[in-house]
Amino acid sequence: MKIFGLTGWSGSGKTTLAVKLLPALIGRGLRVSTIKHAHKGFDIDHPGKDSHNHRMAGATEVLVSSPKRWALMHELRDEPEPTLEELVRKLQPVDLLLIEGFKRDRHPKLEVWRPSVGKPLIAAEDPTVVAIASDGPVPDARVPVFHIDDAEAMAAFVVEFCGLRA
């Protein structure tokens, strides 16, 4: 399973790009899964639902299943957050695993950078950034730069970079 990431500062458009990039990759015949890092706590469950009640009663894991999907929720309960490597091992193998966030991990990444966000270019200091997507000029870029709306070109780059057969 090949791993490729999207990185960038908050508000740069990582999720927007992922949502555009996924159909471009899947349209090439690839099976793609994603991992998204959330810096703050999040909840996919809601008070009043049975699964939420199970978690609140102390269950470490709750698996919810239906004819359309299943989801496994794991409460850390003061355990440390799993590493990206540990999370990857929990997924079924696919052609490509697209990682959103985890900017300090060492997998290859495409940086989403917008001058309007007012943050420095991560690529300037991080050799794992192998391409940049931007809506403006990128100063001193040492890697390929794509327009942030050109998902097809970025998909072609990811496929080639990862050595995938589309």
Score class of each variant (00 low, 15 high):
71 A>Y: 02
74 H>T: 14
24 A>N: 05
68 K>G: 06
75 E>M: 02
163 G>V: 06
66 S>C: 05
90 K>E: 15
38 A>I: 02
47 P>N: 03
45 D>W: 06
10 S>D: 02
45 D>I: 11
88 V>H: 05
30 L>E: 10
33 S>W: 00
146 F>L: 08
92 Q>H: 07
102 F>A: 00
165 R>D: 14
62 V>I: 11
88 V>R: 14
130 V>D: 01
16 T>N: 03
65 S>E: 11
156 A>I: 01
46 H>Q: 14
75 E>P: 01
165 R>M: 09
44 I>S: 11
83 T>S: 15
12 S>L: 09
114 R>F: 03
144 P>Y: 08
63 L>E: 12
94 V>H: 07
43 D>W: 10
159 V>Y: 09
30 L>G: 10
126 D>P: 01
14 K>E: 11
112 V>A: 12
91 L>F: 10
145 V>S: 06
92 Q>V: 09
13 G>F: 03
134 S>I: 06
32 V>T: 07
23 P>V: 07
10 S>N: 04
68 K>L: 14
40 K>S: 14
73 M>F: 15
139 P>H: 06
20 K>C: 01
82 P>G: 13
147 H>I: 00
52 H>T: 04
56 M>R: 12
31 R>K: 15
116 S>M: 01
45 D>Q: 10
3 I>G: 09
117 V>P: 12
26 I>Y: 00
68 K>Y: 05
79 E>V: 00
75 E>W: 03
99 I>T: 05
11 G>E: 11
114 R>A: 12
124 A>S: 14
93 P>W: 03
31 R>D: 13
129 V>K: 02
7 T>W: 08
159 V>W: 08
58 G>L: 03
138 V>L: 07
84 L>K: 12
9 W>A: 12
10 S>K: 15
144 P>A: 09
44 I>V: 14
83 T>Y: 06
113 W>L: 10
30 L>W: 04
56 M>V: 13
161 F>D: 00
116 S>Y: 00
124 A>D: 13
33 S>F: 01
5 G>W: 04
112 V>C: 11
50 D>S: 02
20 K>D: 07
98 L>E: 10
143 V>F: 05
55 R>F: 05
74 H>M: 06
67 P>D: 10
150 D>N: 15
26 I>A: 15
133 A>T: 01
59 A>R: 05
102 F>H: 06
111 E>Q: 09
35 I>H: 04
153 A>W: 04
164 L>R: 02
114 R>L: 13
78 D>T: 07
60 T>C: 00
34 T>C: 14
98 L>W: 02
137 P>F: 08
23 P>M: 08
112 V>H: 08
81 E>Q: 10
65 S>W: 01
51 S>F: 10
133 A>P: 02
15 T>W: 08
166 A>H: 11
24 A>E: 14
97 L>H: 07
147 H>A: 10
127 P>E: 13
63 L>I: 15
140 D>R: 14
101 G>A: 04
37 H>E: 13
30 L>P: 06
140 D>K: 11
64 V>L: 15
29 G>S: 12
111 E>L: 11
160 E>I: 00
22 L>V: 15
86 E>Y: 06
68 K>I: 13
152 E>K: 07
142 R>M: 03
119 K>T: 14
